[in-house]
Write a protein that binds this DNA or RNA. Sequence first.
DNA 1: CAGTGAGCGAGCTTCCGCTTGACTT
Length: 536
Amino acid sequence: MPNALVIVESPAKAKTISKFLGDGFDVRASVGHIADLPSKGLSVDVENSFKPNYELTERGEKIIKELKALLKSADELYLATDEDREGEAIAAHLMEYLKPKVPVKRMVFHEITKTAISEALEHTRDIDYKLVDAAEARRILDRLYGYEVSPILWRKVNRGLSAGRVQSPSIRLVVEREEERMAHVAAGYWDLEATSATTPIFTASLQSVDGSRIAMGKDFDSLGIVKEGVVVVTESRATDLVSGLAAKDLTVRSVEDRPYRKSPRAPFMTSTLQQEGGNKLRITASEVMRLAQGLYEGGFITYMRTDNVILADDALTAVRSEITGAFGQEFLSSEPRIYKSKVKNAQEAHEAIRPTLPLRSPEVIASDVNARELSLYKIIWQRTLASQMADATGVTVTIKLGATASCEPPADCEFSTSGTTINFAGYRQAYQEVEDESESDEKEALLPAMKVGDNIQVDKYSADGHMTSPPARYTEPTLVKKLEELGIGRPSTYAAILGTILNRGYVWKKGQAIVPSWTAFAVVRLMKNHFTELVD
DNA sequence: CAGTGAGCGAGCTTCCGCTTGACTT
């Protein structure tokens, strides 16, 4: 019987793994980092090849004391912190402060299942000091940036301000979006819509006049200048066309059928869960994380701070059989779908955020969690199932119709309408995505049967004036998305970034929108002028 | 001599990423 001490990062994880390992293994948690640079002073010896002066944190001291005591009666030590940069550093720090006299093994696993754990137990390795160096270098750079630049802001702008590798580029994004909005010149344009007198009713919008495409919002640049080869319909032109078309039929000129097919999105990772929590449930990123933490500790979902979208093999099998049972064989994707993380510098120490095994539907756990946790669990459940389901398929029909407006001179007007009919819901049976504005053209609309040459009666033609609008301000979900794309921040910090820039008075929230303060403008300007590379 | 004020020095602010749990609103 072994008598081993196993150290992981999270207490909840320790509890689960303890069950798999059984007697002879004492599983404990480091509860995150145990050592850090003290907050007072730079604590980096700039003269001496940037040697960091790490110290045990207050909690680290307590933890090390406890672990040291346990180590006395152990004859083996397993360092089972996460297999990523920070996890490797935690393992190295544990070595340094525990100074174990017994054999030490580095053990890593990416899913918490019995087979994965016993596999990991048999394939231990040594600490990878290259990765440890990378983690310490990251820490040193962040300290140097933060503690050397912030004081400049105290002197030049305002006391208590801060700068950093993550927060400063974040502020820059918000400020630059605001500048685009201020520089934006609105342009006006009109469009025409025909409402049919058919059953079902449909609307068609004017596309071109005498063969020239008419301008829509997207044809204007930020200065209000319209693209070449596109004509802007003015108010008087629009009313002329409406009266010129009055009571005229439209003739069908073309009917085009295109197959429609859409695949589900990958299972959740931290950033996408925060985005969907914001979009679908209207809750903040930090609220999402609080709820997810509750679900994780209750054993309902896998780890919630991850940049990976992979499902463990047994989870994949379980999900696929759940789909067959709940929806039927035809809703299952023919091949297992394997997703890849698109995140820059993804570390992939954990798997995707998904319901734990054995799979339990939201109804089953409803009485074990509170209402808010349940609503988050529901979207995790649905998204996980959907990720292994079949494509949604259907047909998109695009119809062009024309008529001649009796103006002076007469003008040929071409209208267009389109509608998508979903024949097979596929993954949508389980999970409906929030529509991206950019894909709004695939709206589902019912059209009557039409063929080329048909005359379609029109109930009325109407003209509408529009102004181009500036790019939207960031919201919490869109900022998280942008930061992730740029590789700024980590799953454990996305939610905290907004807190930092709010607390420092760099931004404030106007409803969902994130608006920069004058301080933010001043600081971004100063940093762009003097520390260009630091805000890039 | 008491009260005032200029001048000086010391101490404070700050980073990011890994984990909870103890706070308040």
